[in-house]
């Protein structure tokens, strides 16, 4: 499934828009989520899951090819935690 399939679904199931409008709408949904994640906000979609930005401390890693030690800098990463509802739906 790609964004095009999601757009198609909105176009068919919600209706009342052209395909171009449906595409802009779906783009707005994801843009809104991305803008909030960028500023460190958590996104909680009930029944689906939570997107959470986490702070990772700097640590020493290794280049697996050469074995050379390298410092992995501190960073912010995005994690997804599926909701219990989604987990149950996938294993029902």
């Amino acid at each position: 499934m790609t964004k095009a399939d999601i757009i198609e679904s909105v176009y068919e199931k919600v209706g009342g828009f052209s395909k171009k409008e449906a595409a802009d709408i779906v783009e707005t949904v994801f843009d809104t989520i991305k803008d909030r994640l960028e500023v460190g906000e958590k996104i909680k979609i009930s029944g689906f899951g939570n997107f959470v930005v986490r702070e990772k401390k700097a640590r020493v890693g290794r280049n697996p090819q050469t074995g050379q030690e390298i410092t992995i800098s501190a960073r912010r990463v995005l994690t997804f935690k599926p909701s219990q509802v989604l987990k149950t739906a996938l294993n029902g």
């Binding site: 994640l37 460190g40 959470v52």
Partner: peptide
């Protein structure tokens, strides 16, 4: 974008 982003993080309370 997330890595370069600034702003306080929401608490990591793991509440699903």
């Amino acid at each position: 974008r997330v890595n370069l982003g600034e702003g306080p993080l929401d608490d990591d309370d793991d509440d699903d």
